[in-house]
């Protein structure tokens, strides 16, 4: 049962990710990515990372992708424009290199103890994550606030024409 659910959602994730590349219109790509994000969050649930699963949906699907969709609607491009594709040969270079990379990764993963039962895992509850975040990872957490601050300023400066 668990394995069926895993395979269904893994297939959805991979299919949606491929669809992101295949679609001509960026809007469809973005929507496909939302599907992939939701599928990955279901996989998080299977890994007992409940908290991260909902956070992933809230931040990724509920905020980041809304921003993408807004920008796509804002610019309202008719189609994926082609034309000056100076680096067309990268496609032919990219695919074999990518497959080689995949081969390397899987070869490495072969050596990982892949038989570990995910059932024996830890619970990724909000309390456990909060505890770790606000004691062990305090410095990165505070640094995060600076990152957000800088992103806020940078985005406003770039986006506003007349300041």
């Amino acid at each position: 049962m668990m394995q069926t659910i895993f395979f269904v959602f893994a297939a959805v994730a991979v299919g949606a990710a491929i669809n992101v590349l295949v679609q001509k219109h960026v809007m469809y790509s973005a929507l496909s990515l939302i599907l992939m994000l939701t599928a990955v969050s279901v996989l998080f649930i299977l890994l007992r990372a409940d908290f991260l699963a909902v956070i992933q949906v809230i931040i990724y699907a509920g905020a980041i992708m809304v921003l993408f969709v807004f920008v796509i609607m804002l610019l309202n491009l008719p189609q994926d424009e082609d034309g000056a594709d100076r680096l067309w040969w990268l496609k032919f270079l990219g695919i074999p290199l990518g497959l080689f990379f995949l081969f390397l990764v899987i070869a490495t993963l072969w050596n990982v103890e892949s038989s570990v039962d995910t059932r024996a895992g830890i619970s990724g509850s909000a309390g456990a994550i909060g505890h770790s975040l606000f004691t062990d990872f305090l410095l990165p957490f505070e640094a995060t606030s600076l990152l957000i601050l800088i992103a806020l300023m940078g985005a406003v400066v770039f986006a506003k024409k007349d300041l």
Binding site: I34, V54, V57, I58, G62, A126
Partner: peptide, 16 residues
């Protein structure tokens, strides 16, 4: 265990 956040996550998808 994350019921409240689940509702927020779900409602945030309603925008689409």
């Amino acid at each position: 265990g994350v019921g409240l956040l689940f509702i927020f996550a779900i409602t945030s998808l309603g925008v689409y």
